[in-house]
Amino acid sequence: MNLSSGAAVAGRSLADEAAWQSDSAKGRALTGGVRAAEQSWSFERIYDEYKTPIYNYVYHLVGNREQADDLTQDTFLKAFKALPKMDANLKLSAWLYRIATNTAYDALRRRKLIAWMPWQDLDHEPADVESADPQETIGTSELVHAALKRMPRHYRAALLLYTQEGFSYAEIASTLNIAESGVKMYLSRARHSFREHYRALEQGGGVAR
């Protein structure tokens, strides 16, 4: 018997590969606090660690690369300024996502997209289908992107945090500043909405190319 494998069962490669996929700065393992008494963090290291997950999250929230660049920059600069004042038990990951969420929401608000302009109207924007891997099958990636774009932003944020960043309900509640019961509702509506849009697009609902 392999009595002490770090994996639950030797050979559970699905979970292991998923763990690797989540390597950079997502996943429950990353929500750990950073104790300044024990280690001095370099801003550059924080950036290296979180740049891709934060950028990816912001990108899916706002829907285009250029704005995601600007907002990722804002997010990190805000974080670096505030970090020295934070408590030693800060959950760095959830905190960074909270700043990113608020920064993206502010930007969307500036674009007057909140309340009176449904997100769907943005479908006229050219879809950004640039893939991290040019060989990746464009179809699924494009559908995911388009379906996310059509969802209400709060639900989109909750769904991204849960599925892509591996956040727990409690972590989502903290990041989005809502109650845990609200997370249940957000995720329920998010899944319902994503399913509707994805299936509609799959059946020829028109994906901008």
């Binding site: 740049k51 891709t52 991290a132 990746e136 995911v144 991204l160 599925t163 892509q164 994503f194």
Partner: peptide, 14 residues
């Protein structure tokens, strides 16, 4: 769809 979202490629900044 959870699986599809989890497996979607991550966008990296320039």
């Amino acid at each position: 769809f959870d699986q599809v979202l989890a497996a979607a490629p991550r966008r990296a900044p320039s």
